[in-house]
């Protein structure tokens, strides 16, 4: 049964990208365990505004786990202690009465803090712009039987396409590597006939952009896979490596 709980929050506050940040502590009373984590933050912000203080800045949009905007690092885990969910899908019933919750922004050189808990994730868009697309107009949705695609490939591509680009992979990675994201964006296209044509060029362009933006080198710790809200597998990283190596050997 959901109860009302009292919690202590330790939240990262930082006024701007160049400012020094620090933790600030807040107490909240009577938070329903049925509320979501973001609703709890809304309650806290209401409280701060009524006290005449600056509310906490954090990213959020759809609040149903598909847009990839929410991005909090809660008690040592991106998107909190639950598995395969985004922060907006996290509920307060995951926390006990009297819990102390530490909320931090993504910390990675590729994702500089804009303010408080909000980070700049434009780097991921730049990687997509480098090659995460199909160059020709492939028309409308074709009939399912028009281009036969093996079931296994279709499933693999669909699993990769589940990536919402939230940045949890790079945030969880001790190397600040974006490989899980890049590999998902490569796999979702290269497994399908429309995307296969440019597969080699795409892998090279996206890896080059990823390196240029200062993301780290993957060491296969699997932290990304464990923290990914969409359960994207590191088998996509192996595929990306394979395609990148093949493309360079062919050159």
């Amino acid at each position: 049964m959901d109860k009302d709980i009292n919690i202590k929050l330790k939240v990262w506050r930082q006024r701007g990208p160049k400012e020094r940040g620090h933790f600030e502590s807040y107490s909240l009373k009577g938070i329903s365990q049925g509320s979501s984590f973001l609703e709890m933050l809304d309650v806290l912000n209401e409280q701060l505004v009524s006290e005449g203080k600056e509310p906490i800045t954090f990213d959020h949009d759809c609040r149903e786990g598909i847009c990839g905007m929410c991005s909090l690092y809660i008690n040592g885990h991106p998107h909190g202690p639950d598995t395969e969910i985004t922060t907006c899908q996290l509920h307060m019933r995951k926390f006990e009465d009297g819990a102390e919750i530490t909320v931090e922004p993504w910390r990675s050189a590729g994702f500089p803090v804009i303010r408080d808990l909000m980070v700049d994730r434009y780097a991921y868009d730049k990687i997509i712009q480098a090659g995460g697309f199909v160059s020709v107009n492939t028309g409308g949705v074709p009939d399912a039987n028009a281009i036969p695609i093996p079931k296994r490939d279709a499933e693999e591509a669909m699993d990769a396409a589940a990536c919402i680009g939230c940045g949890a992979c790079a945030a969880a990675c001790k190397n600040g590597s974006a490989m899980l994201f890049v590999s998902a964006k490569v796999s979702q296209l290269s497994l399908l006939p429309q995307g296969k044509v440019e597969a080699a060029r795409r892998a090279q362009a996206m890896i080059a952009k990823m390196d240029e933006l200062g993301f780290g080198n993957c060491t296969n710790t699997r932290a990304c896979e464990a923290e990914c809200p969409k359960g994207v597998s590191i088998s996509h990283i192996a595929r990306l490596n394979r395609e990148f190596i093949k493309a360079n050997l062919a050159d």
Partner: peptide, 24 residues
């Protein structure tokens, strides 16, 4: 990789299951 991780560290970090200590 240290450069890519950035200058500020997490205050709380927790190793997920399936991530071996030696890998990190």
């Amino acid at each position: 990789n240290l450069q890519a991780r950035g200058s500020s560290r997490y205050a709380v970090s927790d190793r997920p299951k399936n991530v071996s200590w030696s890998s990190q």
